[in-house]
């Protein structure tokens, strides 16, 4: 599973810098990556989820946005980080079932080839408790745990 992109924390901090300079309410992730440095609506691709319920970091969190500074991640692109952070609960449900649109999207973001996806889903499901070991697990922990599981 070496094919997963390895992006260092430097990249993330870089994003954090530009994000902070341009719009304080946008963290790192898909939006910043795609629209980094652009003002206005298209670049806002708002980092904040509208309902604010599955916002970020831990299960069932109700507010706040993703901040790159907190990401000491080793693996995963900013896109993965944002997706995992903003869909914590849905992704966990899908992983526990070994199927679903959210875990499929994770596979897409991690460039898992179509023929390896079933094995990918099975592996994540079998390791659910290692990926989500505690109640206060954050999205950063989840990404690190995913990496550990996928390397093992």
């Amino acid at each position: 599973m070496k094919r997963f992109a390895v992006v260092t924390a430097t990249v993330c901090l870089l994003f954090a810098g530009t994000a902070a300079a341009n719009q304080s309410n946008t963290g790192c992730g898909i939006g910043t990556m795609i629209f980094e440095g652009k003002d206005g609506l298209l670049s806002q691709v708002a980092a904040v989820t509208t309902n604010g319920i599955f916002g970020n970091q831990t299960f069932g969190i109700t507010s706040g946005t993703l901040e790159c500074e907190q990401a000491t991640m080793i693996v995963a692109s900013a896109q993965v980080e944002r997706f995992v952070g903003e869909n914590m609960d849905q992704l966990a449900m899908d992983i526990s079932r070994g199927q679903g649109e959210y875990v499929r999207t994770l596979a897409v973001l991690l460039d898992v080839p179509a023929e390896e996806r079933t094995a990918f889903f099975v592996k994540l499901q079998a390791n659910f408790t290692s990926i989500y070991p505690t109640d206060d697990v954050t999205h950063v922990d989840v990404i690190q745990n995913l990496e550990t599981v996928l390397k093992g």
């Binding site: 831990t58 109700t62 526990s96 070994g98 499901q125 659910f128 206060d136």
Partner: peptide, 25 residues
């Protein structure tokens, strides 16, 4: 409440993850 939701949610999903994928989507 969130205090009840988080641990309950994680335990239910943990139990579910041990049941495999018997039905497909």
């Amino acid at each position: 409440s969130q205090e009840n939701y988080v641990p309950r949610f994680r335990r239910i999903l943990g139990a579910r993850s041990r049941l495999g994928n018997p039905e497909g989507e």
